[in-house]
Simulated scan of single mutants.
Amino acid sequence: MGLFTIAEARIELARLRPVLHELVAVRADAAELAASLADGGTPTPLGGLPEWKGAQARLDDLMTVVQQTGAELRGFAPLLVDFPADLDGAPVLFCWLEGEPELIWYHRPDLGFAGRRRIP
């Protein structure tokens, strides 16, 4: 896939919000189900092994939806989504972290999250 402009990345993030919200909810359900199964199958209102397998499958589907946009899902807990871009002739990744209200950060690919800067 191609590179995103900041406007395109912001539009894509807005379009992905329902997917990302569902990913967070299913991630929490999967974690609770996994903990229940690890405790020897202690009952949980969410179910058991079949529901855990279903949650895992749904997580895979949701992650695929994100990746198909050209965005890169870099973190799962918390969610971290990068949008490949070019800023002033240099390759960058516009970077969104779960909980951030909007897309306002970028970093060079070689620096990763530690190199985040505000988008000018």
Rank of each mutant, 00 (worst) to 15 (best):
A57C: 08
M1L: 09
R15D: 08
Y106P: 10
H107Y: 05
L79E: 08
F83M: 10
P109N: 11
G70T: 02
S36F: 01
I11A: 15
L87K: 06
G112W: 03
H21R: 14
A25M: 07
L62I: 01
R117A: 00
V26R: 02
R118H: 08
F113L: 09
A34D: 13
W105F: 13
A28H: 09
L23T: 08
A14S: 01
G75A: 11
A31F: 13
F113G: 00
R118D: 06
Y106R: 11
E100W: 14
A31M: 10
E102Y: 09
L73F: 08
W52P: 01
E100Q: 15
I119A: 13
G40Q: 01
D110H: 08
A34C: 08
E51R: 06
T5N: 07
L103R: 12
V66F: 12
Q68H: 06
L111A: 14
E98A: 10
R58P: 07
G40T: 00
G115S: 01
L37S: 03
A57F: 06
Q68Y: 04
D39M: 10
A85W: 12
S36T: 03
E102V: 12
D88L: 10
F76H: 15
G75N: 09
P45D: 09
L23S: 06
V24L: 14
I119F: 13
P18D: 00
C95R: 11
E32S: 11
D88C: 04
A34H: 12
E12D: 11
V26S: 06
M1P: 09
R58I: 04
Q67M: 13
W105Y: 15
D86P: 00
E98R: 11
D60A: 15
L103D: 11
E8R: 12
P84I: 08
Q56G: 15
P50S: 02
I119K: 12
I104D: 15
V92C: 05
G99I: 05
A57M: 10
L23Y: 15
W96I: 11
V66C: 11
R118A: 08
P84K: 06
P43S: 01
E22A: 04
T44E: 02
T5Y: 05
V19F: 02
E12M: 15
G89Y: 03
A85I: 09
A90K: 13
T42Y: 04
G112Y: 01
P45Q: 05
L37Q: 06
L111H: 12
W105V: 04
I119R: 13
I11Q: 15
Y106E: 09
F4K: 07
F4S: 09
V92M: 03
V19M: 00
V92Q: 03
A34V: 03
D60E: 13
P101R: 11
G99P: 07
A28V: 05
A31K: 13
P84T: 08
L97M: 12
M63T: 14
P43D: 04
R108S: 05
L62A: 00
L73M: 12
P120K: 05
P18H: 01
P18A: 02
P84F: 08
P101Q: 09
R17N: 03
D61S: 12
D82N: 13
G54L: 00
H107T: 02
A90I: 07
P45A: 07
E12T: 15
E98S: 10
F113N: 05
E8S: 08
Q68D: 09
T64S: 14
A77R: 15
L37G: 02
R108A: 04
L103C: 12
G2H: 04
D82I: 14
L3N: 13
V65H: 07
A85N: 10
L111Y: 06
